[in-house]
Amino acid sequence: MNINATLFGQAIWFALFIWITMKYVWPPLQNAMHARQKQIADGLAAAEEGKQSLAQSALRADEEITKARARATEIVGQAEKRVSQMIEEAKNAARNEGNREKAAAKAEIEQEVSRAREALRLQVAALAVSGAEKILRREVDAKTHADLLQAVQAEL
């Protein structure tokens, strides 16, 4: 074992390599590793968040679907009600219309009947007057007894 000045040379090498590692190897390496660690942690957190929001939106979608279904049922119910209402209304309207037509027809018929009766009455009166004329040809002067004839006519 011979210790000599090689010792100093080796110490210088050693110090140089420590310096290189301390300045150029370890800090950048550590930074990169920390940055990667952070990236991975962030990624995991983001994935977790995404999963949660997915579950949340699935829940909300379910809710929406349930709501929409209830609304649809409601709308269908309303429509059915409206339909039956409309049918009822139409029925009523038709019935009213029918009644009115019937009444109008009745009135017309009555009118027609009274008119016919009037004409008939006039004809009967004329017939009676002409009968009476035939019987009383002489005595009865149409001019003198016009008042009487008209009164008989009105009476008939």
Partner: peptide, 24 residues
């Protein structure tokens, strides 16, 4: 001196290179 210094320069140079290129 030569072998230890040469090995050291080689490996620490390579490591410094790796560290310089290191990305996350």
């Amino acid at each position: 001196l030569i072998i230890s210094g040469g090995l050291g320069l080689l490996v620490f140079g390579a490591m410094a290179y790796a560290a310089r290129q290191a990305t996350a």
